[in-house]
Deep mutational scan, measured.
Amino acid sequence: TLATPAVRRLAMENNIKLSEVVGSGKDGRILKEDILNYLEKQTG
């Protein structure tokens, strides 16, 4: 899974598996926005 260290840390802090997040960046890269959108969906 393609993600920057900052995105990986954000995911780890929120107990998110990067494999569950759909990346919207180039080549499927997971962006910070993708993590935040995933969190919004989870908290509903």
Results as ranks from 00 to 15, higher is better:
Val21Ala: 03
Thr1Glu: 06
Glu40Gln: 12
Arg8Ile: 14
Asn14Glu: 00
Asp27Lys: 07
Pro5Gly: 06
Tyr38Cys: 15
Thr43Pro: 11
Ser24Pro: 01
Ile16His: 02
Lys32Met: 10
Tyr38Leu: 13
Leu2Met: 11
Asn37Pro: 08
Gln42His: 14
Val22Ile: 12
Gly23Trp: 00
Thr43Tyr: 04
Ala6Ser: 12
Gln42Ala: 14
Lys26Phe: 04
Asn15Asp: 08
Gly44Met: 09
Asp27Glu: 10
Ala6Trp: 03
Gly44Ser: 13
Gly23Glu: 01
Arg29Met: 10
Pro5Cys: 09
Ile30Trp: 00
Tyr38Asn: 08
Gly44Arg: 14
Asp34Lys: 00
Leu31Ser: 08
Asn37Arg: 14
Asp27Trp: 04
Arg9Asn: 09
Glu40His: 05
Leu31Cys: 07
Pro5Ala: 14
Glu20Met: 09
Thr4Ala: 05
Leu10His: 00
Asp27Val: 01
Val22Cys: 13
Ala6Lys: 05
Gly28Asp: 05
Gln42Val: 11
Ser24Asp: 02
Leu10Gly: 02
Glu20Trp: 08
Gly25Glu: 02
Thr43Trp: 07
Leu10Ala: 04
Thr4Val: 01
Ser24Ala: 03
Thr4Ser: 14
Ser19Gly: 11
Ile16Trp: 00
Arg9Gln: 14
Ala3Arg: 02
Glu20Arg: 08
Thr1Ala: 07
Pro5Arg: 08
Leu31Asp: 05
Gly23Pro: 11
Val22His: 15
Gln42Arg: 15
Thr1Ser: 06
Tyr38His: 11
Ile30Arg: 01
Leu18Glu: 04
Gly28Met: 02
Lys26His: 08
Ala6Asn: 10
Ala3Val: 12
Asp34Arg: 00
Ile35Met: 06
Thr4His: 07
Ile30Met: 03
Arg29Asp: 08
Leu10Thr: 04
Leu18Gln: 02
Lys41Arg: 15
Arg9Met: 11
Ala3Gln: 04
Gly25Ala: 04
Leu31Val: 10
Gly44Leu: 02
Tyr38Ala: 14
Gly44Tyr: 08
Tyr38Ser: 10
Leu36Val: 13
Lys17Asp: 14
Ile16Ser: 02
Arg9Trp: 06
Leu31Met: 09
Leu31Asn: 10
Glu20Cys: 05
Val21Arg: 01
Gly44Ala: 14
Leu39Val: 14
Gly44Gln: 15
Ser19Trp: 05
Arg9Ala: 12
Val7Ser: 06
Lys32Glu: 15
Gly23Ala: 08
Ser19Met: 06
Ala3Cys: 08
Lys41Met: 11
Lys17Ala: 09
Lys26Tyr: 07
Ser24Gly: 05
Lys41Thr: 12
Asp34Gly: 01
Ser24Arg: 05
Ile30Asn: 01
Ile16Gly: 01
Asn14Ser: 15
Val22Leu: 11
Gln42Gly: 15
Tyr38Ile: 11
Leu10Phe: 13
Leu10Tyr: 11
Glu40Gly: 13
Lys17Gly: 06
Val21Met: 11
Gly25Gln: 03
Asp27Thr: 04
Leu36Cys: 03
Leu10Glu: 04
Ile35Asp: 03
Leu36Ala: 11
Asn14Gly: 06
Lys26Ile: 08
Ile30Tyr: 10
Ser24Lys: 05
Glu20Val: 06
Ala3Pro: 04
Ser19Lys: 09
Ser24Asn: 06
Leu36Gly: 09
Lys41Trp: 07
Thr1Val: 14
Leu39Asp: 07
Leu2Asp: 07
Lys32Asp: 07
Gly28Ile: 00
Asn37Ser: 13
Gln42Lys: 14
Ile30Cys: 02
Met12Val: 06
Val22Gln: 13
Lys17Met: 11
Val7Asn: 01
Glu40Val: 09
Val22Pro: 14
Glu40Ala: 14
Val21Thr: 01
Gly25Tyr: 00
Pro5Glu: 15
Val7Ala: 15
Ser19Phe: 05
Gly25Leu: 00
Val7Gly: 06
Asp27Pro: 01
Lys17Gln: 12
Tyr38Phe: 11
Gly44Asp: 12
Leu39Gly: 11
Thr1Phe: 13
Lys32Cys: 06
Lys41Phe: 07
Lys17Pro: 14
Glu33Pro: 08
Arg8Gln: 13
Gly28Ala: 03
Asn15Leu: 03
Arg29Ala: 14
Thr1Asn: 13
Asp34Trp: 00
